[in-house]
Design a protein around this nucleic acid. Structure first.
Lengths: 254, 254
DNA sequence: CGACCGTTTGATAGTGCTCAATTCAAGTGG
DNA sequence: CCACTTGAATTGAGCACTATCAAACGGTCG
C-alpha cells in the first residue's frame, strides 16, 4: 500500500554533519548567517536530531492519520498535501507544503498524527526525533523557541484557513489561494508570477472548500478578466495587483 | 472602551499558593492525583507562573488581535469567544472557550496575538507569564510537554474546524456544534442534555460559517424532528443519538 | 492506438444567502 | 406600572451562488 522509500542511514544521526551548519532551515538563521552570525542557534541543534531521511515518491504516503507520532518531518525538497479525513470518507485538504516546511506538528499533542500527508512530487524528508528535540531543547533556548514558533505558526495558518472557509466567496478563495502560493514561492526566491501547480483541481477545491468544477470555472473567469493565463496546471499571473485585491481581507497562510 | 477590570495582586506571583497544589487544570494531573500521585507535575509549576488575575465583564475584551503576546491566558471561570478579523471588517469566530481552556496560544509564534477574545459572561482569567513558563520549562519536562500539548491540541482543534467548514452541510454543522458543546460540558461534569447558550445566533453562525438566519431555521427544524427543544438560548436535547448521527464524520473540537 | 485520468464545459437543481418584516425579551424612563 | 426603546431571534419570499450530473475534451502511458 505504502510505496514510500525509506532509506535510513547508518546510525541514528545524519552523516557528515559534524561541524558544518545546515542550509539554514528558517528565516531567522538565514538572516543571522547573512549578517555574519555563526549559525549557532537551533539549526546547529537541528542537525543533531535528524534520525534519517526518507525519499517519498510522487503519490506515496508520508504518513497517515492515526500513525504514532515519533518526530517532526522536515521537508527537504518536494511538495506535499495534508488532509484530515472524516469517518464517512470525506476528506479535507488542510495544507500544501514545500521545501522548508515542518510536517507532523499536530502529533505533538496526543502522540498520534491526525492528518494524512501525501507527496505530490518526488520528495525528500528529514525525520527529526522528537525525543532528541525534547532533550536538546532543555539546553538550547533557541531550539526550544523555534519549536514553539513552528507549532504556533501552524495555529495561525489554520486560523487564516478558517477565516477563508468561513467567510469568503469562491472567487475570493481562489484568489487567496494563488496569492498565498505566489507569496510563498517568492519568499523562497522562486518565480513570483509563474507557477506550475503540483496539485489537481480536485485537491485545490478540497483545500478551498469548493468543487473542482468551480475551481476550473473561476480560473477561466480570471483568464477572461486578463488576471491570469492558465494552461492546465501552468499558471501565469498577468495582473497581480488585481489578484491581490480580490484576495482582500486575507493574511498569509503558509 | 475596554471595560475589563484588571486586579493585579502584590508581587508577580499568585498569592497563597506556596505549597498547595492547584485545582488540577488538566486531565493528566487530575488523573495522577486521583491515583494517589503528588501532583508534582506541571500544575505545581503553573502556580509559579501566574502573574495576576483579571476579571473580565460580559462583553468586555480580553485581548485584541495585534496586542503583544506576553503570556498564556488560563480561563479560570466564564466563557469566551475568539475571532479572527479580516481587513475588510468581516469576522470569523474561531472558537468558544470555557473554564480550563488556555487562550492566546497563537501568540507564541510572532509575539503578537492574532485573534480577539471577548467574554460572553463575567469571567476570571489567570495570566501566565510566558517568560516564566519558558524558564521553568527548562527544568520541568512535564511543564514543557504540557505547553507543547496545549498548543498541539489547538492545532488539532483547528483542523477539525477546518474539516467542518470545508465539507459539511449547514445542518451537519449545527449538529456538530451542539454535539461538541455537550461533549465539552460533559467532560466538565455538567448538564449533558441541557445547555444555556452563552452566544448569540450570529456568533454561532460565524463560527459555523453560515448565517444566523440559517442557524435559527435549522434549530427549528431540529425541533420539528423532535431532536431538540429550543427556547431562545435554552436548549434541551431530546434525541441525542440522532443528533450525534447527524454530526457524522466529525471528531472533537474542544 | 485505445484506455484512463484530469480538466473543461454545459444544463439544471438546490442550498443557503439577502433583504425585509415581524415577534419577542429585556431594559429604560416617564 | 406602562409606553417606549433596543437588540436578538424568528420567519418569509426571492434569488445568487455553487453543487450536481453529464458529456466532451485532451494529454499520457501502456
Amino acid at each position: 500500500m505504502d510505496r514510500t522509500h525509506t532509506s535510513t542511514y547508518p546510525g541514528t544521526r545524519f552523516p557528515g554533519m559534524g561541524t558544518r551548519a545546515l542550509q539554514p532551515t528558517c528565516a531567522q538563521c538565514r538572516k543571522a548567517l547573512s549578517e555574519g552570525g555563526t549559525g549557532s542557534g537551533h539549526c546547529v541543534y537541528m542537525e543533531q536530531v535528524v534520525t534519517h531521511r526518507r525519499r517519498v515518491k510522487q503519490g506515496a504516503v508520508l504518513y497517515n492519520g492515526g500513525d504514532p507520532f515519533t518526530g517532526l518531518l522536515y521537508v527537504r525538497s518536494g511538495f506535499f498535501k495534508t488532509c484530515v479525513g472524516a469517518k464517512d470518507g470525506r476528506e479535507q485538504v488542510t495544507g500544501f507544503h514545500m521545501t522548508g516546511d515542518i510536517l507532523g506538528v499536530e502529533g505533538i499533542s496526543g502522540g498520534k498524527l491526525t492528518t494524512n500527508a501525501v507527496a505530490l512530487e518526488d520528495s525528500e524528508v528529514w525525520v527529526l526525533s522528537f525525543d532528541l528535540i525534547e532533550q536538546f531543547s532543555r539546553e538550547c533556548s533557541s531550539l526550544r523557541i523555534y519549536l514553539l514558533e513552528t507549532i504556533g505558526h501552524e495555529v495561525v495558518r489554520m486560523q487564516n484557513l478558517t477565516l477563508m472557509l468561513g467567510s469568503l466567496r469562491a472567487d475570493e478563495r481562489v484568489a487567496v489561494f494563488l496569492t498565498n502560493l505566489l507569496e510563498k514561492l517568492k519568499s523562497r526566491g522562486l518565480s513570483q508570477s509563474e507557477v506550475l501547480l503540483r496539485m489537481s483541481r480536485d485537491e485545490i477545491g478540497s483545500f478551498l472548500g469548493i468543487r473542482q468544477e468551480t475551481v476550473s470555472r473561476l480560473l477561466r473567469s480570471f483568464c477572461e478578466e486578463r488576471i491570469l493565463q492558465v494552461d492546465n496546471r501552468h499558471i501565469k499571473v498577468l495582473n497581480s495587483a488585481l489578484l491581490q485585491q480580490m484576495a482582500t481581507s486575507q493574511t498569509a497562510m503558509h
